Computed example of a mutant assay.
Amino acid sequence: MDFDCDILISGGGVAGLTAAATFGAAGFRVICVDPTPPVTERDAENSDLRTTAILQPARALLEQSGLWERYAPYAAPLQIMRIVDAGGEIAEPRVVREFNAADISDQPFGWNLPNWLLRRELVARLGDLDTVDFRPGTGTRSLFTREGEARVGLSDGTRLSARLVIACDGRGSPMRDAAGIDVHTRRYGQKALAFAVTHPIPHENVSTEIHRTGGPFTLVPLPDHEGRPSSAVVWMEEGPKAQDLLALDTGAFEAAMSERSCHLFGPLTLASRRTIWPIISQEAERLSGERLALMAEAAHVVPPIGAQGLNMSLADLRCLLDLARARPEGLGDRAMLEAYHRARHNDVRLRVQGIDLLNRASMVSAQPLRDLRAKGLDALYALAPVRKTLMQMGLGVR
């Protein structure tokens, strides 16, 4: 049977483009579509100002696909993860625990990069691959599958046949919906602000997560910006408060974020525009259907805690690639996709549930509960074996 491609990828975000580059570099014929062309400049309208921490286990996969050599010059290493409880009457640290990657590895935990830059380098890499046809501005509209093939209708009226469809098309995935796969969603009433800052005190490659109320305030190292130390910030708050913060003028916002950061890096200066998005957890009932694999946010969505989001997606991708290489003749068949679901489903469920618990703990506002959280943090993370286990679990190596 003749196919238009081996793999059709629905979705051209960071995960979808990475899947296209990875399978293309492995020799599979790939078509990747997305209705919205990627924004690849920092200050362009609608650019994604969030950052992504690429954890250790993902680096080998990115090296194989020719992506890491593009990322490396811009990557800020994450050597230490610092957890701060500032849940007292005033915004100041009262419990501080640090996790140093040197305790478990000779490499950093990971490397942080801006999402807009990841898209820029991904698009450039796809341009080098004859095996990949990237079609920005075109989306998926329909899905018809049978035992031997998938047929996908596109927004430009064309229909394509493929051996495997990979849905990387977000939390509202049209391919997942077309396959009739249900999702379970948890809503927290939270929103997250994302932006970049500069500060007078160097971050020294320390990622800092500060817990008070409403959700964590996280500063993740970036390369220097205009000669000053710089960090990416994700500030999670109750929805109405997040909207109020978004509406503040620059001076008032800088005062608010400096206080929320406990002044650990000195006064913070806004170095980008602010973006906002709702926080949910979401989990697909199954990670596969006939000739269809769900990946990334089509399969799972978690709050931005512990750098798990994209790294869960890259674990999905690594699993799919290993299965495809092991049996190229079985690409997209029932045996491959059942094996994919079995291999990933339990890990996804445990991580979604674990991050849900961490987020709920970070949201508490009543002072007795905040005090209890601080005591638990102090007791738990003070134990060296527990600290080491948590670091290994966070990297996905245990």
Results as ranks from 00 to 15, higher is better:
W111S: 10
C168P: 04
D2E: 13
G24K: 02
E98T: 11
L310S: 01
A242Q: 10
E259M: 04
P77V: 02
R318M: 07
D169K: 09
M391E: 05
R82W: 03
A271W: 06
R286T: 14
M336V: 10
P304R: 05
A20C: 06
E204F: 02
F195Q: 07
R228T: 02
L55K: 12
F253Y: 09
I280P: 00
R344C: 08
P267Q: 10
P303E: 02
A339H: 08
A178S: 12
G157K: 05
P136A: 10
G332V: 12
W277S: 14
R151Y: 00
G139W: 02
T213A: 12
S207W: 00
A75V: 14
L320W: 12
S230L: 04
D322G: 07
A293C: 10
G66N: 05
V234S: 05
L357D: 08
I210A: 10
A326V: 00
H203C: 04
G66E: 03
L61W: 07
D177H: 12
V364Q: 07
S365K: 04
M1G: 14
D2V: 06
G215F: 01
G170Y: 05
N46Q: 15
R370F: 11
V132K: 10
E209L: 06
V183N: 01
R291H: 12
Q392G: 10
P37S: 15
A102Y: 05
A382M: 00
P328M: 11
D130E: 14
L78C: 13
G180D: 09
S362F: 12
S65G: 06
S261M: 04
L160I: 15
H203F: 04
S10V: 04
E121P: 00
I166R: 02
R159C: 09
L245S: 02
A284W: 07
P223R: 11
A20G: 03
A178Q: 14
A44D: 14
G376A: 12
E238D: 15
P202D: 07
T22A: 13
P37E: 14
Y340K: 04
P304D: 04
M363H: 10
H184M: 04
L287W: 02
L369G: 02
V165L: 08
A379H: 06
A298I: 09
P174E: 11
P229E: 07
V95E: 12
S261D: 01
Y71C: 13
A91P: 00
W277Q: 11
L292T: 06
A102E: 11
G394D: 02
L323A: 08
R370I: 05
A242S: 13
N205F: 09
G306P: 06
P278N: 11
R119Q: 15
N346L: 14
L270F: 09
G227V: 05
G394F: 03
